[in-house]
């Protein structure tokens, strides 16, 4: 379970002064559900997810992941999450198997237990054929499968996906989306950021539209459509964002 309460992140920029990247973002994400953060580039999605993953420290607010506070128990939080983004890469000079095993070890798996877990993932994600190939020699699709294995090697109860299909071809994107659906089926808590409407419509049980670091609207895909009176999610998103722009003006 993820509970975010008033998460706020500000930072100083030489040119822009004090920048509010995220302002009082709150949401709850339950096991067996996919919670989507929908927003344009620079809306604050990545910053929010980085705070949840303890990569960034919130300026204000708090969050708990699988019962652990992100500020008080950052190492337990990291042990409880799998993190996958479109920009995360693999270690080029390690083999696919070594890559998965390395993150297994970092998460406390050792010896026979580690071997069993790696074997299971290699079979489940069909990595066997290239498990001993160096990561820098793998195709994009193969790399993405290794990345998935790396993110779930320690069987985390919570999965965080930050624009995981960004820059990927249709086939590889399908693999990722199927994996996210599998996470829901396995009763994991899933938070997922994207700016692609079709992914939201296919995957998300609950959506928060983030704009300029603020949650502009929250609800199911159907509820957001009804609220805006738009049949297409894309139009619903634009209506909500534009209405916020008008309010600000």
């Amino acid at each position: 379970m993820i509970i975010a309460e008033n998460l706020t992140k500000t930072f100083r920029d030489r040119k822009r002064g004090l920048v509010r990247a995220v302002t009082q973002v709150s949401f709850t994400c339950e096991p067996g559900k996919i919670f989507g953060l929908l927003g344009a580039n620079g809306a604050g999605k990545t910053t929010t997810l980085r705070m949840l993953a303890t990569l960034l420290e919130p300026t204000q607010g708090s969050a708990t992941i699988a019962g652990f506070d992100i500020q008080k128990d950052p190492e337990d939080v990291r042990r409880s999450i799998g993190f996958l983004s479109g920009s995360t890469a693999l270690y080029g000079r390690l083999t696919a198997r070594e890559m998965i095993a390395y993150f297994g070890k970092l998460n406390g798996l050792h010896g026979a237990a580690l071997d069993r877990r790696v074997d299971a993932l290699v079979e489940q994600l069909e990595i066997g054929e290239f498990q001993n190939g160096r990561c820098d020699k793998l195709s994009t699709g193969q790399k993405q499968r290794v990345s998935i294995a790396r993110s779930i090697v320690h069987s985390p109860p919570v999965m965080i996906f930050d624009e995981p299909t960004s820059g990927l071809d249709v086939m590889t994107s399908q693999t990722i989306m199927s994996f996210i659906e599998q996470c829901r089926a396995d009763k994991l808590t899933v938070v997922f950021s994207t700016h692609i409407m079709s992914e939201v419509e296919r995957l998300c049980d609950q959506v928060a539209i983030v704009h300029r670091g603020v949650v502009a609207a929250e609800g199911t895909v159907e509820a957001l459509r009804q609220r805006t009176g738009e049949a297409a999610m894309e139009n619903a998103f634009l209506k909500i964002v534009n209405s916020m722009e008008v309010e600000d003006a």
Binding site: A53, R78, F83, S85, A89, Y91, L106, N107
Partner: peptide, 10 residues
């Protein structure tokens, strides 16, 4: 882009 992956480990 591997630094983020490492930092999110325990």
């Amino acid at each position: 882009g591997t630094m983020e992956t490492l930092l999110v480990s325990p």
